[in-house]
Design a protein around this nucleic acid. Structure first.
Lengths: 280, 280
DNA sequence: GTGTACATTCCATTATACGCAATGCTGTTT
DNA sequence: AAACAGCATTGCGTATAATGGAATGTACAC
């Protein structure tokens, strides 16, 4: 999503402005340390919404308020606003759950980016031809955001769900995408989210990663060789828009033994072929 | 979603409060007619988000501001807040598009209601066994909200997308669900969203609808006999949770000729069977 | 029945969101 | 080129409207 302005673009300018706003004489009490852009009530309500989305069960007012460090009174009124627009709902015991409007708008996000609205079909096709679980993801905020997931017939039920995120360094999607980026940008991305050892195979240092990305470039596809989950191998390749710009990546995932039986290079070619066909 | 508090529940109490806030003496200027609950800045920003979700192309600041009737300055700062939390992004020409966080949270909405996270599989199974497009939807705000849609092999490409809404009175999903509700509630729902003639077959008056719902009850499934789109027939049946409570509905849709060939009663039984199997 | 934790209402206080006006910026017309 | 037109952005004073403490109401536990 490189054509999008990132928030960092404006932080420089923003900070200058805020510095100028600092009280000049000492007796002015510094009430708040927020140098956040925009309207406080809004960012707070969005924080509440994000907090709520992390709860797998309905959340009480006080729990949410604690989670985002707000006075319950304040949280209550912000949640009322969210409720009036359908972004949250309340159960009979007054606990909060996400409202249907979140789903409505989240769907519009996919629909309005035409290339992603076909992501499901792409994943389904690959899942069908391989029998393994297949995913489509994009680079977003330095992570892989899963757009679509299709379970293969031989599904093991350990696939991530759409809308979740994973690191770049330990996924085939992430490596396939990073292989397209300049080395400096890769280093930047990796230092933002420093690799942690998730399995014995996880690639931890920059040097190894750059070498790995070279291999990805020459092969045309990336392999996650049990680097995130022991026993699971993923194979991914980038997908492009009609102009050849990279817009995301496609992968198959399955148990290591079965993937090796099918043949990593063969699967790699299949993924690349599907990705290419889609780009048309 | 009857276990959820609707906003109407609190409107009574809320209004009393607001009435008490009305200026008592006439010289106090009545600055705003908003009797909306909650925090103004927040509801405004949510309105902006909803407005943006309706745009199929990136929207300019001024366009959005006009759409929700806000001063551009105000809209700008609200959008900055939305951007800082990833709910909107900007393209290089500073137009606004929905941000990835909307998708992330919209997905969480499905994931956190366990019964709906399986909706995709349910739709896919029925699409596979019938070859026709299959949908899962729920009653929400007096409409059908589509949760999942699976295209059949013989797809015609005229299916609604997940996250969109349709009226109750002209969809098999809507009629299947209404058949489970008390007559008074049906009347209430229909008067909120009065039927309009979409095709020659659209059911317009309450009496006909109640008679139609009787047939639905005896058959166990509902038929949309070209009532919304000419040439398209849908067949729907409710799905239930493990306790037997109605949580949504399932349907197949296809061209009238082909659906009649397959046999409406046969398809009906198939839909009912799938819906029953799912409820377990 | 007493106690605790939580949700909600009330209210004063002042911070804070607001909109006007002015400034930049971009792209278009003659 | 120059002048214009439309839009995005910044600055700033003002009054509104968001805030949090305190009080009240409610639900549940012991």
């Amino acid at each position: 999503m490189s054509w999008l302005r990132t928030d960092a673009d404006t932080i420089g300018a923003q900070e200058e402005v805020n510095v100028a706003f600092q009280p000049v004489d000492d007796e002015t009490p510094v009430v708040q340390r927020d140098d956040q852009p925009g309207v406080r009530a809004v960012t707070r309500s969005l924080d509440l919404l994000v907090e709520l989305s992390k709860w797998e069960r309905p959340a009480r007012l006080s729990e949410l308020a604690r989670g985002v460090d707000l006075h319950p009174t304040t949280a209550l009124r912000l949640l009322e606003s969210l409720r009036s627009r359908g972004f949250v709902s309340q159960t009979v015991d007054r606990s909060y759950v996400l409202g249907s409007r979140t789903f409505e708008i989240g769907s519009a996000f996919l629909r309005n980016v035409s290339i992603w609205s076909q992501a499901n079909q792409l994943a389904e096709q690959l899942a069908e031809s391989t029998g393994e679980t297949s995913s489509v993801g994009v680079l977003d905020e330095g992570q892989i955001l899963y757009i679509a997931i299709a379970r293969g017939q031989q599904d093991m039920g350990i696939a991530s769900a759409p809308g979740t995120r994973h690191p770049l360094y330990c996924t085939s999607l992430g490596k396939a995408i990073m292989a397209e980026l300049p080395a400096a940008e890769v280093n930047e991305l990796l230092s933002q989210d420093p690799p942690r050892r998730l399995t014995p195979n996880t690639i931890l240092d920059l040097g190894s990663m750059q070498r790995e990305l070279n291999e990805v470039r020459s092969a045309g596809y990336a392999v996650d060789n049990e680097e995130r989950t022991p026993g699971v191998i993923c194979i991914g390749a980038v997908i492009r828009d009609h102009r050849g710009a990279q817009v995301g990546a496609l992968s198959v995932s399955g148990p290591a033994v079965r993937m090796r039986e099918s043949g990593i290079p063969e699967l790699g070619q299949l993924v690349v072929k599907s990705a290419r066909a889609f780009s048309a």
